[in-house]
């Protein structure tokens, strides 16, 4: 029976600290190399939080969501809007029409991030109350419509934001530590959720839509819980992003972002937290190497002159290749384990 319900069920130190240490060591190690890599690490951490947000919902429920970009969008929006200085908000060309109360709305950095999480969770909770009834393709398209709706609104609205332009001068994180700590917290939260009874029930519904209700599990309810939590995390990811980029622009949370983070999840393996971490890591690393080649630099002595745009092409290509080779992802849906240290009892 336990074999059927892939994913963790009880607390296992290794499964939690494996991902934590991996992220910690790599972030600090790579971040120390150069200023540009340090910035890359910060962006990667934002993506990581988004990918584990997706894992919480998509991975556990098996329902596809294209709508998480919307939660990141609003999370980033409120976090950026509440920290950009009053002077900028009052004078910037793109913000001439900004609603007055927003100009005076100010929070400190951490409160603004919390606000991003709360707003992400709130929007997810409200929309989820309706959307969680849907399965399969209808769910995919409905969440996509959600993303499209938010994008269309923010892209054109100049009362609540800069419309298609950028909100400038959002305060940045001082270094890699702030986003790192936030990411580590997110990992712990997701791990604890994934071993909870709620997540277990959700995975049961993924395996069999009919059996779960028979066991007394309300699919809609457990999905809604996961959707709300993952909405909060997506909001967090957006809030982090806005303080890494130092600017808010609606395009940053649309199709490319959705595709990239979903690709990371699928490449790593959506069934496990470790898969989300590995996927983010692999795609980011490949992307970085390709970026350097695109810029004509050499890496460990290898220099390739990639034309502009080849990077995204290769990432898209490797996503498809990944699916062809092993559609459960690099980790094959397994949690972190060290092969030679004795296997977790399976079965």
């Amino acid at each position: 029976m336990s074999k059927k319900l892939a994913g963790l069920t009880k607390f296992n130190t290794r499964e939690l600290f494996g991902p934590l240490l991996t992220v910690l060591i790599l972030s600090i190690g790579v971040g120390a190399i150069s200023a540009s890599l340090q910035l890359a690490v910060q962006f990667a951490l934002c993506n990581l939080v988004m990918v584990i947000a997706l894992q919480v919902f998509v991975g556990n429920s098996g329902v596809l969501s294209f709508g998480h970009g919307a939660f990141a969008m609003v999370g980033a929006w409120i976090s950026g809007m509440s920290t950009a200085s009053e002077r900028v908000k009052g004078n910037a060309l793109a913000l001439q029409e900004l609603w007055q109360p927003l100009v005076g709305f100010n929070l400190n950095l951490y409160l603004s991030i919390l606000a991003g999480m709360v707003l992400g969770a709130l929007i997810a909770a409200i929309t989820g109350a309706f959307l969680m009834r849907l399965n399969g393709l209808a769910a995919g398209i409905a969440t996509f419509a959600l993303l499209g709706l938010f994008y269309n609104f923010f892209f054109n609205n100049i009362t609540f934001g800069p419309g298609s332009q950028a909100l400038p001068a959002v305060p940045k994180f001082s270094g890699v530590y702030e986003p790192l700590v936030l990411s580590l917290i997110a990992i712990v939260v997701v791990y604890l959720f994934n071993i909870s009874a709620t997540a277990r029930n959700l995975r049961a519904s993924r395996e069999d839509l009919l059996a779960a209700p028979a066991l007394g599990v309300s699919i809609q309810r457990v999905r809604w819980i996961a959707f709300t939590i993952s909405g909060a995390l997506a909001g967090l990811s957006g809030a982090m992003y806005v303080h890494v980029a130092g600017t808010w622009q609606v395009q940053d949370y649309y199709l490319v972002f959705t595709f990239l983070t979903l690709a990371m999840l699928v490449i790593g393996g959506s069934a496990s937290l470790w898969g989300a971490v590995v996927g983010t890591l692999v795609v980011t690393a490949v992307g970085q190497i390709l970026l350097l080649w695109e810029q004509g630099k050499s890496i460990v002595g290898i220099k390739l002159d990639l034309p502009n745009g080849a990077r995204s092409l290769i990432i898209a290509g490797s996503l498809v290749a990944m699916l062809l080779w092993r559609f459960a992802g690099v980790t094959n849906g397994k949690e972190f384990s060290i092969p030679f240290l004795g296997k977790r009892k399976s079965g």
Binding site: L64, L137, V256, F259, A263, V266, A316, V320, L323
Partner: peptide, 10 residues
């Protein structure tokens, strides 16, 4: 669906 998404971007 995800594969076609990837193919589309590619």
């Amino acid at each position: 669906l995800i594969a076609s998404f990837g193919l589309s971007v590619g």
